[in-house]
Design a protein around this nucleic acid. Structure first.
Length: 818
RNA sequence: GCGGAUGUGGUGGAAUUGGUAGACACGCUAGUCUUAGGAACUAGUGCCUCCGGGCGUGAAGGUUCAAGUCCUUUCAUCCGCACCA
């Protein structure tokens, strides 16, 4: 009898799949399409780890499952190659990023193939390939045309180690997402994408997405829409106005002081009189402090009185103007009206500096317009809804009505207007680094910033010797003089190329479209092709909640507006999987030496099928788990049992056995269960059901094998195992008489009538406690079942006299109440 | 602080509409057999027990014939965002 030997059969089938090009697909409108992709990897020098194996196995199983349903399945792969790690690695080792990247890709590709991934390799893309980034640049120019890419001077996050600016999304708790260094603020002229213009559009579509709630909430919070008003406070004795933003214009009558962010343009100007020196010193100090220092210490508020006053537009009262670092320069207008009675932060500030606290909202309508302040505990801040008090003509109005009425009242007097602000900022895309797609812009003395025309794309990244940043705020490209000096596409006059490169996230914001038309040399994509395959049916990943997943949505929304695609949302279903940690439960890392390399596991003899099955069996997709080297042994045992069962069947004398009915019922029940589990992406339970199936078949086989029923049962087993363990399945499929590859055979179906067993075990409860079991036939009447239950020996012990109530849940249990 | 989850055996985890809690697997225990292997197979494995049964899904209440599942309160852990006005 042949032994299960994955290291022999796996390479064999991988070669056959490749030779037959079974995974290469084209547009076919007669078939249902399914487009499944994993978030493409950043091919690091370390190669793949168990987490990669997990994510891409999920994609592959989905792809194979739908292929077995006759769908036209696109499962592509590409490489996210631009970015800091590759460049830093290159600087460290002295090799060029181009060379290092090519080596790493070759390594990753080998691993993918050895894991049996059913990828259409004819569609492989690489973001650092000029044929790819040419179109990334083209998209930039289109955004530029529409005013969605612009340049502005502003304070930005700067990583002093990586010597580049970072997007907001790339700063994690004040530290650089790549190297962990404390970031600084630096004023620089930078390129931005105007994602804020799409804030509402992006927000609106979130509920329609079949994405994990976690991600949807994270995006909603990230966009952070706040509806409120801008309100003008005139500066007393000056023509200046302080514009504040508030979500609670209904509390305006309680605004007892105004607070400016230290960065506010009026902050220094308003420093006056005896307070001038102290205020200026505070402002200077606060601006210098890193953001992290400022936000870290949230308990103790600091601030300083400017010496100036502003006029509350509702009351006409003079209120002091303060400067404090709890007000953020970058949000709203950088100035707030402080209503200490109804805002915690303002309250803390007012208490510390002894500023007036005016109650303007009564929580309980029963208080009417009478102030509760006088006797109310001073420490009580009420930030909820209620009825206005101490608010002139608005007394008695509900807070929600007052919000509208007060804004309208201000608007009449040009002292305010409704305003919606967002927490999200525009996407900063300039990077002062070499290894990225050059921003396709030329700076002309006459015409300013001019987009490079399509005919001159790509702007190829020149190969240079020294690509390390020097910290002068410019990328190494600035030193490539031949490249920098060029002519203006508008006038032909002398001009300089933009030397910043684009954030790598730009490249990954449209690759899901390019996959569908990867070789198009005429345009970024053919609309018909893109609209056939897209949007993506399944997008599998375990990283990124906002950054990439927000950017890719943003670009697609823009493409829709530009008429380049027919859909707004790029990803229908987002499959978010957990991490695989090392055996000790900590994160796998190269430095700790606890990384599990999938290739090692395969080469130890377990094979790719066992690896794939194991990572899926560990638990539900979304949960984190820890690698357990013993667990894969159990999986290997299971695959061996499958193998052995088929060998025994093949070798056996076939005869009628008497267990055919039972085997058939088992088969149909299993098809129903496993099919549903696959569809719901419950791979762990699908595998468990297949194990149970095999265990049951082992029990039945002692009676011998019949030809037809057992052949069917085993072919079904092999087919249902095929998405997960494709190599073994193809091998056994042939052995069981299959004529084509398993993935080309139709998925088994079940007959509901055949899933019902002839005799069913029903539990009997007395007063909610299980007291016995009865065997009934499948057609037994409810009354007969109840009677049978009541005559059960053990049940009789607990039932004295006439039962109050007898409930029969068909096929499940009988509940007797006494 | 806000938001999102998650709490089930020694471990990873299963449980349609509320309907026999612990599927499946790891581990463990005992046994069988042998070409001593990364074995394989068989049986057992939630806790307690006076062997009748009792108790069990973070905790406490509630609804129900019946609750891991629904409701109320509460505790713990993890993750995301964090002075966003």
């Amino acid at each position: 009898m042949r032994r299960y030997n994955p290291s022999e059969i796996e390479p064999k089938w991988q070669q056959i799949w490749e030779e037959q090009k079974v995974n290469e697909v084209a547009v076919d409108k007669d078939k249902i399409k399914t487009y499944a992709a994993g978030m493409f990897p950043y091919p690091s020098g370390a190669g793949m780890h168990a987490g990669h194996a997990f994510g891409y196995t999920i994609v592959d199983v989905i792809a194979r499952f739908y292929r077995q349903h006759g769908h036209n399945v696109l499962n592509p792969m590409g490489w996210d190659t631009f970015g800091l790690p590759a460049e830093n690695y290159a600087i460290k080792t002295g090799t060029s990023p181009q060379v290092a990247t090519a080596t790493n890709i070759a390594n990753f590709k080998k691993q993918f193939k050895r894991m049996g991934m059913s990828i259409d390799w004819s569609r492989e893309i690489n973001t650092s390939d000029p044929e790819y980034y040419r179109w990334t640049q083209w998209i930039f120019t289109k955004l530029f045309e529409r005013g969605l890419a612009y340049q502005k001077e502003s304070l930005q996050w700067w990583c002093p180690v990586d010597k580049t600016v970072l997007a907001n999304e790339q700063v994690e708790a004040g530290h650089c997402w790549r190297c962990g260094t404390l970031v600084e603020k630096k004023a620089m002229k930078q390129w931005f994408f105007k994602i804020t213009e799409y804030a509402d559009s992006l927000l609106e579509e979130i509920p329609s997405l079949d994405w994990p709630q976690k991600i949807k909430t994270a995006q909603t919070n990230w966009i952070g829409r706040s509806v409120g008003a801008e309100i003008e406070f005139a500066v007393d004795g000056s023509d200046d106005f302080i514009t504040v933003f508030s979500t609670r214009p209904d509390t305006l009558f309680g605004a007892s002081f105004v607070v400016l962010a230290p960065e506010h343009t009026l902050a220094t100007k308003l420093a006056a009189g005896d307070f001038k020196d102290a205020a200026e010193a505070y402002i200077k100090e606060a601006v210098k402090k890193s953001e992290i220092e400022r936000t870290n210490d949230t308990k103790e508020k600091t601030g300083v009185f400017t010496g100036s006053y502003a006029v509350n537009p509702a009351t006409g009262e003079k209120v002091p103007v303060w400067v404090a670092d709890y007000v953020l320069g970058g949000y709203g207008t950088g100035a707030v009206m402080a209503v200490p009675a109804h805002d915690e932060r303002d309250f803390a500030f007012a208490e510390k500096f002894n500023l007036p606290i005016i109650d303007v909202i009564a929580a309980d309508p029963e208080f009417g317009t009478e102030s509760v302040t006088a006797e109310a505990d001073a420490a009580k801040i009420y930030s909820g809804e209620g009825i206005l008090i101490n608010s002139g003509q608005f007394d008695g109005t509900s807070t929600s009505d007052a919000r509208e009425q007060i804004v309208a009242w201000l608007e009449q007097r040009s002292l305010g207007r409704a305003k919606t602000t967002y927490r999200m900022r525009d996407w900063l895309i300039s990077r002062q680094r070499y290894w990225g797609a050059p921003i396709p812009v030329v700076h002309c003395e006459v015409h300013g910033a001019v987009a490079v025309p399509e005919s001159q794309l790509p702007v190829v990244l020149p190969e240079i010797e020294d690509f390390a940043p020097k910290g002068d705020g410019k990328s190494a490209l600035a030193r490539a003089e031949d490249w920098v000096n060029t002519t203006c596409p508008e006038c032909g006059g002398p001009a300089l190329r933009e030397t910043d490169t684009m954030d790598g996230y730009a490249c990954s914001s449209w690759y899901l479209l390019r996959y569908t038309d990867p070789k198009n040399a005429e345009k970024a994509w053919d609309p018909e092709t893109v609209n056939y395959w897209n949007p993506l049916d399944f997008y599998v990943g375990g990283d990124h909640a906002v950054a990439h997943l927000l950017y890719v949505r943003f670009w697609t929304h823009v493409f829709k507006d530009m008429g380049l695609v027919d859909f707004k949302e790029p990803v229908k279903k987002l499959v978010y999987h957990g991490y695989i940690n090392a055996e000790d439960g900590t994160k796998m890392s190269k430095s700790k030496g606890n990384v599990v390399d999938p290739l090692d596991v395969i080469e130890q003899g377990y094979g790719a099928d066992a690896l794939r099955t194991y990572v899926l069996f560990m638990g539900p997709l979304e949960l984190d788990s820890s690698w357990d080297s013993r667990g894969i042994g159990g999986i290997y045992r299971f695959l061996n049992r499958v193998w052995t069962l088929v060998q025994e069947y093949s070798a056996a004398e076939k005869s009628f056995t008497g267990n055919d009915d039972a085997v058939r019922t088992l088969q149909h029940k299993t098809i129903r269960k496993v099919t549903a589990d696959y569809r719901d992406l419950g791979f762990n339970t699908a595998i468990a059901a297949l194990m149970e199936y095999v265990n049951e078949l082992y029990k039945y086989k002692v009676d011998g094998f019949s030809d037809e029923t057992w052949g069917d049962a085993l072919r079904t087993l092999v087919q249902m195992l095929a998405p997960i363990a494709p190599h073994m399945s193809d091998e056994l499929w042939v052995q069981l008489g299959g004529e084509v590859l398993v993935q080309q055979a139709t998925w088994p179906t079940w007959d509901e009538a055949l899933t019902v067993e002839n005799t069913i075990t029903v539990a009997v409860q007395v007063n909610g406690k299980i007291r016995g079991e009865i065997e009934i036939t499948k057609d037994m009447e409810a009354e007969a079942v109840k009677e049978l239950a009541l005559s059960h020996e053990n049940v009789l012990k607990f039932v004295t006299g006439e039962p109050k109530k007898v409930i029969y849940v068909p096929g499940r249990l009988v509940s007797i109440v006494v």
